[in-house]
């Protein structure tokens, strides 16, 4: 563990908490892409299956459980409890165009052709594009509530901090994982446009 990864995990946790609070407090999921949230739940489910097979640390196990619970909790709030406020008309990104390529790519490029490894690789590829429906929805509606933009800023920052973690690990532990690094860079690059808007204008209400 290093400070970059710890800050990244905290930023990730913060993003998920901000989202849950926004939906719970405003009792509305307006402006939030349910499709992205479904993709995140698939990402965590595919990646954290090793929760039952390999114990790494209490921190690791607890965070995995928190991320899984929070992502399914968000889906429950969006599609069941506050379903009436879900904005179907603007949440239209075709997620099958994201899932299928990630499945194919994870079968072609992976560290080891075993079920758990393929699922992990699939989750890494899918996570890098999982935010696209949300960014697409924000661009379509032309704006985002301030709380939603804070959510996106924290979520985008998490993987950017992980890139610093990978740089650190390369020099400090001579460890690197090409698949995670390339996907993490793609994921962070996708936020660049949003980061620019967030920092220059605070995109809410524009």
């Amino acid at each position: 563990m290093n400070v970059f990864r710890l800050l990244g995990d905290i930023s990730h946790l913060l993003a998920i908490i901000i989202l849950l609070l926004k939906i719970w407090k405003t009792r509305s999921c307006a402006g939030i892409s349910g499709r992205s949230q479904v993709l995140f739940a698939v990402v965590y489910t595919a990646r954290y299956l090793d929760l039952f097979t390999s114990y790494i640390s209490a921190y690791n196990s607890i965070m995995k459980l928190v991320f899984l619970a929070a992502s399914y909790g968000t889906i429950y709030l969006m599609f069941i409890k506050f379903k009436a406020s879900y904005d179907h008309n603007h949440d239209t990104f075709r997620i099958e165009f994201l899932i299928l390529p990630c499945v194919l790519l994870s079968l072609l490029i992976n560290h080891e052709f075993s079920p758990l490894e393929i699922l992990w690789t699939f989750s890494i590829y899918l996570e890098s594009v999982a935010i696209l429906p949300q960014l697409f929805m924000v661009s379509k509606t032309g704006e985002a509530e301030s709380i939603t933009s804070h959510y996106l800023f924290a979520l985008g920052s998490y993987r950017a901090l992980y890139i610093l973690n990978w740089i650190y690990r390369y020099y400090a532990e001579s460890h690197y994982d090409v698949i995670a690094i390339v996907a993490g860079i793609v994921q962070t690059v996708l936020y660049c446009d949003f980061f620019y808007l967030y920092i220059t204008k605070g995109i809410y209400g524009q």
Binding site: M63, H111, V178, A180
Partner: peptide, 10 residues
Amino acid sequence: RLLQRSKDEL
């Protein structure tokens, strides 16, 4: 140690 899957990362 190079190019191994980062198993300890979330």
